[in-house]
């Protein structure tokens, strides 16, 4: 599976020649600054810490591949529908170029497939912020829909990790229709008595929030995740007033009653495994 070409980058500091070891200057890409506590962090330390700030616990965004690595048991993930690619269906000006640029970072806005999670067979869909901010295009909706249909047919639970800036404007009404289509597929999976767990990650907004993100039997979110239908900028414009500080964070929507729990990244997989097992899903025979 070429998918598992993803390997944690080696600690490049180890390869710095001796002669340069005492030079205080370290190439910029090896450091990142935590936007929350301003601490400078070594990227290698960060990766070891699941991209969570070692000082303040701020959760950095992860790529879909990193997140699959986090959620799925080692080497168990088999991708589905990897051949589906967004295209400029409406001939929207500039969209071809945008897609080309997006594909330098990732193939698509979502990766779907089946895997083992703590030995339990499940369908896993992970959205990709690197591809047009995880916006909902026709292919996004189609892949999610197929994943739910596959899970229904094979009586598997589904785990979806969301991240999305909202609609894919360049696909016009077809972007909107994905909300109906995916919701229909979730409903049929639900009516079949199967479990759907949503994991909301930063940011989850717009049409994804108003469809499959909010349709899980159990909705988990990472700390300090933006969870919104209308984003804060839109609301500020309409209300012409500053919003309360923690408005639309996962902690805020938890308090308002719209999600089940805020779970930190290091406990995410264990929590999902527990929930799967409590719903009668058993570890697959080796």
């Amino acid at each position: 599976m070429d998918f598992f070409a993803f390997v944690k980058p080696k600690n490049e500091l180890e390869t710095v020649p001796d002669s340069q070891q005492n030079v205080p200057f370290v190439p910029e890409e090896m450091w990142m600054k935590c936007p929350k506590c301003n601490t400078l962090l070594l990227t290698t330390d960060m990766e070891e810490n699941l991209n969570v700030c070692t000082k303040c616990g701020h959760h950095f965004r992860m790529s879909a591949k990193q997140r699959i690595h986090l959620m799925a048991d080692c080497d168990s993930f088999a991708e589905h529908d990897s051949e589906l690619r967004s295209s400029n269906i409406l001939d929207f000006p500039g969209y071809d170029k945008k897609l080309e640029k997006a594909r330098q970072k990732a193939n698509e806005s979502v990766i779907c497939g089946e895997c083992l999670i703590g030995g339990v067979k499940a369908v896993l869909c992970v959205m990709e912020a690197g591809f047009m901010m995880g916006s909902m295009g026709t292919v996004t909706g189609e892949k999610i829909t197929r994943a739910f249909e596959y899970a229904t047919e094979n009586r598997l639970p589904v785990v979806v990790c969301t991240v999305s800036g909202g609609a894919r404007m360049q696909e016009g009404i077809l972007s909107l229709m994905q909300m109906a289509k995916t919701s229909g597929a979730v409903k049929r999976h639900s009516d079949a008595g199967l479990l759907y767990i949503t994991v909301l990650t930063d940011p989850t907004t717009g049409g994804v929030t108003a469809s499959f993100a909010m349709e899980g039997d159990i909705i988990l979110a990472e700390p300090n995740t933006l969870v919104a239908f209308a984003g804060p900028r839109v609301i500020e414009q309409t209300m012409r007033q500053k919003l309360p500080k923690d408005f639309q964070t996962s902690e805020f929507v938890l308090q308002k009653g719209f999600i089940d729990a805020v779970v930190s990244r290091d406990k995410l997989k264990a929590t999902v495994i527990k929930l799967l097992k409590m719903h009668g899903y058993k570890e697959a025979a080796q």
């Binding site: 909300m179 919701s183 929030t209 239908f229 209308a230 609301i235 209300m239 408005f247 009653g257």
Partner: peptide, 18 residues
């Protein structure tokens, strides 16, 4: 609006679709 978000605009729409 703030109230609409607090009362789950996204959840309300999602539930209707389903």
């Amino acid at each position: 609006g703030i109230g609409a978000e607090e009362r789950g605009q996204g959840q309300a729409i999602a539930e209707n679709l389903m």
